[in-house]
C-alpha cells in the first residue's frame, strides 16, 4: 500500500489477523483509498463494526474513532452516534452474518429511516471466525461445517433487501473489481442518506477449501466467472442468471 496511506493505519497492529488471501484485506485497502481520494479527515469519521472477521477491518486497523460492538448491532450503535452528532461521518463495516443475519432488523430499519450512514457489508458467504458455518448469504448447495451435504436454504439478496426497505444508494461489487469498488465506496460516502455497499470477499480458509479451492487467486477467478454486471444481466434470461451474481449500482437516488 502506498506509504502516503499509512497515515490512515495503526501500523503497529500489523500484520492483520486475517487468514492468508482473505478478501477483507483487499476491501480494507479499497476503503482507505476511497477516503484518501475524497480528502476526508479521519478525525471526523467514526467506524462502527460488530463481531466477526469483517468487523476487524476497521478495528483496530484504522487510525480513527472506532466502535467495535456486540454481534449484529453496529447499525443501531451507529444510528445513535450519528443522530446525536451529525457532523460525524459514520461508516459501518461488518460481515454478512453480523449485518444481514443477527442484525438484519437494524439494517432494514436504517434503510427505512434513510439515515445518513454508509454500511459496507463484507460478504464472504459464511461464518468465518467461528469455523465455517452456513450463513444467510451462503449460496445454495455450498458445503459448510453445518451443511456438509450442501446448503438447502436460499440466501438473501442483500441489495434487493436494502432497496426494498428504502436505502437510497445500493451497490454490489466483488473485491476483484477493486477499481469500481473504490469508486462505489466513494459514492456511498458522498451520498446523503443510507448507502449500502455489499462487497463479495472470498474466504479461502472456511468457504474456499470446502467448495471451490483453498487458494485465494483461484477463488478470485471463480468470483470473476460468477459475476455479471447489471447491464449485462439485463440481457440475460432467468435460467442463465440462476448461478450468477449481479454486480453494479442498483439504487443511486
Amino acid at each position: 500500500m502506498s506509504k502516503h496511506l499509512y497515515k490512515y493505519l495503526r501500523t503497529e497492529v500489523f500484520p492483520t489477523p486475517f487468514c492468508s488471501g482473505c478478501g477483507h484485506g483487499i476491501l480494507m485497502g479499497a476503503i482507505l483509498r476511497a477516503i484518501d481520494e475524497l480528502g476526508y479527515d479521519m478525525d471526523g469519521m467514526l467506524f462502527v463494526s460488530g463481531i466477526g472477521c469483517g468487523a476487524w477491518i476497521p478495528s483496530p486497523h484504522f487510525a480513527a474513532d472506532t466502535l467495535h460492538v456486540t454481534h449484529g448491532r453496529p447499525v443501531a450503535f451507529a444510528t445513535g452516534a450519528k443522530l446525536f452528532k451529525p457532523s460525524l461521518k459514520v461508516v459501518v463495516i461488518s460481515g454478512d452474518g453480523d449485518i444481514a443475519s443477527i442484525g438484519g432488523n437494524h439494517l432494514i430499519h436504517a434503510a427505512r429511516r434513510d439515515i445518513d450512514l454508509t454500511i459496507i457489508c463484507a460478504n464472504n458467504g459464511i461464518y468465518g471466525m467461528t469455523g465455517g458455518q452456513v450463513a444467510a448469504s451462503t449460496p445454495l448447495g455450498m458445503r459448510t461445517s453445518t451443511t456438509p451435504d450442501g446448503n438447502r436454504e436460499r440466501p438473501f439478496d442483500l441489495c434487493k433487501l436494502v432497496e426494498a426497505a428504502g436505502g437510497t444508494y445500493v451497490s454490489r461489487y466483488s473485491v476483484h473489481q477493486v477499481k469500481p469498488l473504490i469508486r462505489s465506496i466513494q459514492r456511498g460516502l458522498e451520498h446523503t442518506g443510507l448507502s449500502f455497499i455489499e462487497v463479495l470477499s472470498p474466504c479461502p480458509t472456511q468457504f474456499g477449501r470446502r467448495n471451490v479451492s483453498g487458494t485465494a487467486f483461484e477463488m478470485l477467478q471463480t468470483l470473476k466467472e460468477d459475476c455479471v454486471s447489471r447491464q449485462k444481466a439485463e440481457t440475460m434470461g432467468s435460467e442463465e442468471l440462476k448461478y450468477k451474481i449481479v454486480t453494479g449500482e442498483f439504487v443511486t437516488s
Binding site: 500500500m1 492483520t16 480494507m28
Partner: peptide
Amino acid sequence: ELMCPDLA
C-alpha cells in the same frame, strides 16, 4: 498493490 490483502 490494490489486490494485496495484507497491504504489504
